[in-house]
Design a protein around this nucleic acid. Structure first.
Lengths: 107, 107
DNA sequence: CCGCATCCGTGGCGATACTG
DNA sequence: CAGTATCGCCACGGATGCGG
């Protein structure tokens, strides 16, 4: 495997989708159900709205989540997992388990 | 789960260990066996020695790989997976498979 | 409430040259 | 050959304020 092949390989692609600082956390929350933007934002007090929007937009373009807008004023926007995004479940679980195990061995 | 918990959660830890631009590729190569530094470097023509060394050092400190030095001149240094690093095998495989699948659905 | 524009600091990454 | 020193870029993330 050379560099070009590596860039296209599955592992690289997957990691690039999860690479954003807040994306895994967003995914974890969305696994608990559809979330309103302002609620997502409130749960993560340290992220600016701008950045949160960026990450959501990227994930939406990647097809991992869906943006659901309810017309009216004030606006009401929900974000939820797509089918594609839901398939990340087992992967996130394994990432989590490996990490927990790793932490154990370091203590 | 709040932000602080998230920072310590397993998934986050795992992702942080794999986050370097060249780390997954390094791991893939090391899974094929112990590698001399200069060979690793030759295989990845686009990375500078400085950066490659940085990533190797971080992975060594994380306990994922081992640095094996053979005394003499010119110096001869090999890098190889630790037991800990070897346990990443199934995880990398799953990352790769999910990514391949993802790419399929995009075509 | 949601999204966008602007400005800015920082760190990861890279190029290059040099030492033992 | 392996590693260090120096310099610079730029994308990412963050702070703040405006507008629909």
């Amino acid at each position: 495997m050379n560099y070009e092949e590596f860039q296209k390989c599955g592992a690289r692609v997957t990691l690039s989708l999860l690479a954003g600082k807040w994306k895994p956390l967003i995914l974890f929350y969305l696994f608990t159900g559809s979330q309103r933007f302002t609620d997502l934002w409130r749960i993560m007090p340290r992220v600016s709205k701008k950045v949160l929007l960026e990450q959501l937009k990227e994930m939406e373009e990647a097809g991992l989540i869906r943006r659901v807008e309810k017309n009216g004023f004030p606006p009401e926007v929900f974000y939820e997992l797509s089918e594609q995004g839901r398939t990340l479940g087992p992967l996130l679980k394994q990432l989590d388990e490996w990490g927990d195990n790793y932490i154990q061995t370091k203590e």
